[in-house]
Amino acid sequence: MVLTQGSFRHLATHAGAAGVTEADAVLLDLGLSSYQLDESARGFSFQGDEPLDMRFDPAQGPTAAELLNCLPQEELARILFEYGDETQARRIARRIVEQRARAPFATTADLVAVVKRSVPRAAWSRRTHVATRTFQALRMAVNDEPGALREALPQAAALLAIGGRLGVISFHSGEDRIVKRMFRSLEPTGFGELEPSPIEPGPDEVRHNPRARSAKLRVLARLEAA
């Protein structure tokens, strides 16, 4: 086993460095680990009061706080809507801009407070925290997760041997759409999706692991040489 720290978007480079030219199986798990949520102290979770960082690699790119304090209101609203499916995106973005004019964002508590003030009580979900979608969207923007996924999928498919499988576990409807469209685009080149619909966790799995409730697994097979 060879462990390598890096982004999905550099999959081919990492595989080549490890001497891997062909694979029987590739699995991309797009979710966060429980450690990152609970122990990293980088602001992935709204359960505590932590610095608004959210970078997977603390040495790369701007922090979540920097995006919140600098991005135009329209761009913030787009991120919240596209990456978080947040129906209150415009309202939250407007409040973010108003708040940062008074004091810059620094911690997760700062962001949670603004989201709570922005979303009407009647619109709060009974199943998830009112800030869940905002935190998800901001994390995806900080790490350019959709861009990394778009770059990684063709590289992963190219590594597959005939009969090999590429599995992708996504946790967001936007991610699942990217995977679905990419898989469909690869079908004319010798690939096929094993199931027309994604595989989702059953009630027992969700009961034992609530964080799996939104997971969707799609599997692509290489059927013939390109």
Results as ranks from 00 to 15, higher is better:
residue 52 L to P: 05
residue 88 Q to Y: 11
residue 162 I to W: 03
residue 67 L to V: 06
residue 55 R to I: 09
residue 101 A to C: 10
residue 89 A to S: 09
residue 172 H to K: 08
residue 188 P to K: 03
residue 57 D to V: 06
residue 179 V to W: 01
residue 195 E to F: 15
residue 184 R to D: 13
residue 199 I to E: 04
residue 174 G to I: 04
residue 110 D to S: 11
residue 112 V to A: 10
residue 99 Q to I: 13
residue 38 D to H: 12
residue 45 S to F: 04
residue 37 L to Y: 06
residue 134 T to N: 06
residue 101 A to G: 10
residue 159 L to Q: 02
residue 150 R to M: 08
residue 118 S to F: 03
residue 124 W to S: 01
residue 2 V to P: 11
residue 142 V to L: 07
residue 89 A to W: 04
residue 128 T to W: 13
residue 73 Q to W: 09
residue 147 G to V: 03
residue 27 L to R: 07
residue 156 A to G: 02
residue 34 S to L: 06
residue 155 Q to R: 08
residue 117 R to L: 12
residue 145 E to W: 00
residue 182 M to G: 12
residue 118 S to W: 02
residue 98 E to H: 14
residue 36 Q to W: 11
residue 33 S to H: 09
residue 58 P to T: 11
residue 165 R to A: 05
residue 55 R to W: 10
residue 44 F to Y: 03
residue 185 S to I: 08
residue 169 I to H: 03
residue 223 L to E: 09
residue 208 H to D: 15
residue 50 E to T: 00
residue 132 T to E: 09
residue 30 L to T: 10
residue 10 H to A: 15
residue 52 L to S: 00
residue 218 R to S: 05
residue 123 A to T: 11
residue 18 A to Q: 07
residue 164 G to V: 10
residue 128 T to E: 08
residue 31 G to Q: 05
residue 69 N to V: 07
residue 140 M to C: 04
residue 70 C to Q: 15
residue 175 E to D: 02
residue 48 G to K: 12
residue 162 I to N: 06
residue 99 Q to F: 13
residue 21 T to Q: 14
residue 101 A to Y: 08
residue 166 L to A: 00
residue 162 I to Y: 06
residue 141 A to Y: 02
residue 33 S to Y: 08
residue 66 E to Y: 11
residue 194 L to Y: 11
residue 223 L to D: 00
residue 38 D to K: 12
residue 105 F to Q: 05
residue 128 T to A: 09
residue 128 T to M: 10
residue 115 V to G: 02
residue 32 L to G: 12
residue 33 S to R: 10
residue 189 T to Q: 13
residue 167 G to Y: 06
residue 85 D to Y: 07
residue 194 L to G: 12
residue 35 Y to H: 14
residue 35 Y to E: 13
residue 164 G to F: 08
residue 109 A to N: 08
residue 121 R to V: 13
residue 79 I to P: 00
residue 27 L to K: 03
residue 24 D to C: 11
residue 215 A to K: 01
residue 126 R to P: 04
residue 17 A to R: 15
residue 176 D to W: 03
residue 138 L to E: 00
residue 151 E to G: 02
residue 120 P to Y: 00
residue 201 P to F: 07
residue 200 E to N: 13
residue 221 A to W: 02
residue 64 A to S: 05
residue 184 R to T: 10
residue 26 V to S: 04
residue 54 M to Y: 03
residue 128 T to N: 08
residue 161 A to C: 10
residue 62 P to S: 07
residue 93 A to T: 07
residue 52 L to G: 06
residue 201 P to T: 12
residue 57 D to C: 07
residue 26 V to P: 03
residue 198 P to H: 12
residue 162 I to S: 09
residue 19 G to F: 08
residue 197 S to N: 15
residue 149 L to A: 01
residue 42 R to K: 10
residue 66 E to M: 12
residue 137 A to C: 05
residue 184 R to A: 14
residue 153 L to F: 06
residue 99 Q to H: 14
residue 151 E to A: 13
residue 142 V to Q: 04
residue 168 V to S: 04
residue 149 L to W: 04
residue 203 P to Q: 04
residue 57 D to K: 05
residue 35 Y to M: 13
residue 114 V to P: 06
residue 83 Y to A: 04
residue 98 E to V: 13
residue 126 R to T: 12
residue 51 P to A: 02
residue 56 F to S: 11
residue 222 R to Q: 03
residue 179 V to D: 01
residue 142 V to S: 00
residue 149 L to E: 02
